[in-house]
């Protein structure tokens, strides 16, 4: 648990650090200068000479239509916004879109797999809302920035200051939210008394030959997978190497594995039902449990 806490702390700090960098980089005056320039450059295609040397594939009739449409649009736009930097090499976004390779099915699957949402936990929903809010704020900021282009430099500096202050406030609020969201997770952790109760119940299910050789060195780790109702889906012996090489260990390990299944068959008296009943909302915490069976600590009775 300590290790997990450290990881969490480390990642939180990394997150904050990167967030700070992000604000420094992307909200800097330099970036704003860049933003003043339009995100794409409109080029009058009539002025561009397409030679054979470009070796571009001949556009299909449909594409031609599209290209015509785009040029018409661009012509219209030209009226409103004339190109500021005509010397720059022209880009042809529509043609590029055509040339983009279609992702193979495997790649598409990969992307889908990566985007599988994590199990829904209430706090995360709130986080998502916060993120939506942040996105809206970002949009507003961009709008503000465009407005700033028209205002004087002094005014813009003042506004930058105020927006920066707002950002700080929002950031602080966001951090507070995170803290508030993370605290319920800690509170819902499986209690020590519940753990002890489960352990005692499993001990009752564990039948072991007291005269097994080398019993003092037997520690069996069983990984138990549970469903949301607290039923055992699978029990796996962890130390597979010793399991296959040491017959005595195999026997003791199987007795521990059997204990899990025997307890599972106790219906409502199953120790795993405690988790489903008391901690149903935090299934992700107990869907997988590592049990360490140690015959000597509590004695064989």
């Amino acid at each position: 648990m300590n290790l997990s806490f450290l990881y969490s702390l480390l990642l939180h700090f990394s997150f904050l650090f990167l967030l700070g960098i992000q604000f420094m980089l992307f909200n800097s005056p330099l970036e704003k200068e860049q933003k003043k320039t339009p995100s794409f450059i409109v080029v009058d295609l009539k002025k561009v000479k397409i030679t054979k040397e470009t070796a571009l594939p001949a556009p299909t009739p449909i594409k031609k239509k599209k290209a015509q449409k785009t040029t018409q649009k661009e012509e219209k736009k030209n009226v409103v916004l004339p190109p500021k930097k005509p010397k720059l090499t022209p880009k042809k976004p529509p043609q590029k879109k055509v040339e983009k390779p279609i992702p193979s099915s495997k790649e598409a699957v990969k992307i889908v797999q990566k985007n599988i949402p994590a199990p829904k936990i209430k706090p995360r929903k709130i986080i998502q809302k916060e993120l939506k809010k942040r996105a809206e704020i970002q949009k507003k900021k961009e709008q503000k920035q465009t407005e700033l282009e028209l205002s004087s430099l002094l005014a813009s500096v003042e506004e930058i200051k105020t927006s920066a202050q707002k950002d700080k406030k929002e950031q602080a609020e966001f951090q507070e939210n995170i803290k508030a969201l993370s605290s319920p997770l800690i509170e819902q952790e499986i209690g020590i008394s519940e753990k002890e109760k489960i352990a005692l119940m499993l001990r009752e299910c564990w039948n072991l030959d007291a005269g097994v050789q080398d019993i003092e060195n037997m520690r069996i780790e069983i990984l138990v997978f549970l469903d949301k109702q607290g039923n055992v889906l699978q029990a796996k012996i962890n130390d597979t190497a010793r399991y296959s090489s040491d017959k005595t260990f195999k026997s003791v390990a199987e007795s521990a594995e059997r204990a899990v299944y025997i307890c599972n068959k106790k219906g409502e008296d199953s120790p795993f039902k405690i988790l489903a009943q008391k901690y149903g909302a935090t299934y992700s915490q107990w869907r997988k449990i590592l049990f360490t069976f140690n015959p000597m600590d509590g004695g064989v009775f």
């Binding site: 969490s8 992700s284 590592l290 049990f291 140690n294």
Partner: peptide
């Protein structure tokens, strides 16, 4: 960073057995 907290493996020690 949240994942590390919420998915930490639950560990329970079972000491002793009946014979």
């Amino acid at each position: 960073s949240f994942g590390f907290k919420s998915y930490a493996l639950l560990k329970i020690d079972v000491s002793g057995a009946k014979s």
